[in-house]
Design a protein around this nucleic acid. Structure first.
Length: 377
DNA sequence: AGAAAGCGTCTCCCCCAA
DNA sequence: CTAGTTGGGGGAGACGCT
């Protein structure tokens, strides 16, 4: 039997960091993101801004109408990553069983019956050491931990166990279930289903018939059954870069030049993380917002800027575009770390192999089993 | 009604081979 | 010999997060 599951979610993370780094913003409506000519959207906003109806993903022009006095800050991803790492360090001092979901969110597993006390201590530690608020949901599975973390916000902790869930959650919209977005909610509404207790009346066959494999998962969820284990070593599956132009672009040469830039940026990040890619996709958005992607898996591993751009260019030209574009992007996926031919020098290669061997042995027999004698490490 | 970033992952569908 | 099944890979788009 596994232990208690915690979902730790930093409150209004980007906005809170801005308020932390710029104390004059404390207590004020803050919007992070939202620049980019007049085409920006809100990436994150403080609770003071939310009081005016401002939300993530809202166009800045709309947010400004709702809250003209909001202070708009650019995204400073490096800083957020730095603080996120510090938060993870604190989590690690409580348990080694951590699944990092995103920059501001992680599942933790602790001893059975220890969830509430550990969660309370974690909240205190993060507040004391980093001055950040973290909301925590506690349960015996990931689903209810996630849902109760949302009920705990802002700056709270809530435990919710499967036996209490029907009573506590029955009246809430089906949208509280992660994975039930606007489309699924609309579909359910066409059957007159709005809230959790209505949905939970349907038998498994109904879910299977109407929603397939996803439906069976949803049936389990709405009965508060969720056996998903924590994924402790999640590896990145794709690397991408995209840009929305401040004004639509139709010039093909210009678009190709931008595609080249983006390919180089993706190539740099690919090599920096030691991956090679099997697949490259380009993404294109037209002024009317219709978005398409096209991808290619050329049969050899991609890692040089030249190869990335070559494929991107081919995909772009195959589209025979005539309309102007609003956005263009490049993404690589099917990442491969094993079969890579190193770009490093021979010496660095040996250095890497040695590091790898040491890592393997320590993994197998425990840390500190072997170490390097002097030199690097 | 009008406005809509930049990441990333998931899921559906198709095709092919065993 | 033919039809159905399964599993993997590729491609496209939906979805979710700040």
């Amino acid at each position: 039997m596994r232990g208690d599951i915690l979902l730790c979610d930093l409150d209004a993370f980007y906005a809170s960091v801005e308020q932390l780094d710029h104390p004059e913003l404390k207590g004020k409506p803050v919007i992070v993101g939202g620049l980019h000519g007049n085409r920006g959207v809100v990436a994150a906003c403080s609770y003071e801004a939310r009081a005016f109806g401002v939300r993530s993903a809202m166009p800045t022009v709309v947010a400004k109408k709702l809250c003209p006095q909001a202070i708009i800050r650019p995204v400073n991803m490096k800083r957020y990553q730095e603080l996120s790492a510090k938060v993870l360090n604190i989590y690690e001092s409580f348990t080694p069983l951590i699944e990092v979901v995103s920059i501001d969110e992680a599942y933790l597993e602790v001893g059975k019956g220890r969830g509430v006390i550990t969660g309370t201590e974690i909240r205190k530690a993060v507040q004391k050491e980093l001055s950040l608020a973290v909301s925590i949901g506690v349960s015996s599975n990931k689903l209810l931990a996630k849902i109760s973390s949302n009920l705990a916000k802002p700056n709270g902790l809530k435990a919710l166990w499967p036996k209490d869930a029907p009573q506590v959650l029955g009246g809430y919209s089906v949208r509280i279930i992660p994975g039930v977005g606007p489309k699924t909610a609309d579909f359910l509404k066409s059957f007159g289903i709005d809230n959790i207790s209505e949905l939970s009346k349907y038998p498994i066959g109904w879910f299977r018939n109407h929603l397939g494999a996803r439906g069976i998962e949803l049936f389990n969820y709405v009965n508060w059954v969720d056996e998903r284990p924590l994924e402790l070593n999640r590896e990145q599956k794709s690397i991408g870069r995209e840009i929305t132009f401040t004004e639509d672009i139709s010039d093909k040469e210009k678009l190709l030049a931008i595609l080249n830039e983006l390919s180089q940026e993706v190539g740099y990040r690919l090599r920096k993380t030691g991956f090679k890619a099997k697949t490259l996709s380009i993404k294109i958005r037209f002024p009317d917002f219709t978005t398409i992607t096209r991808s290619k898996t050329p049969g050899y591993l991609l890692y040089t800027d030249g190869d990335l751009f070559k494929i991107a260019k081919t995909l772009f030209e195959e589209l025979k575009l005539v309309k102007p574009l609003r956005l263009i992007g490049v993404t690589v996926s099917n990442l491969d770390k094993e079969l890579q031919l190193s770009l490093f020098t021979e010496e660095e290669k040996n250095e890497d192999k040695l590091a790898e061997v040491i890592d393997r042995i320590n993994e197998k027999f425990g840390n500190g089993t072997i170490k390097r004698c002097g030199g690097k490490g």
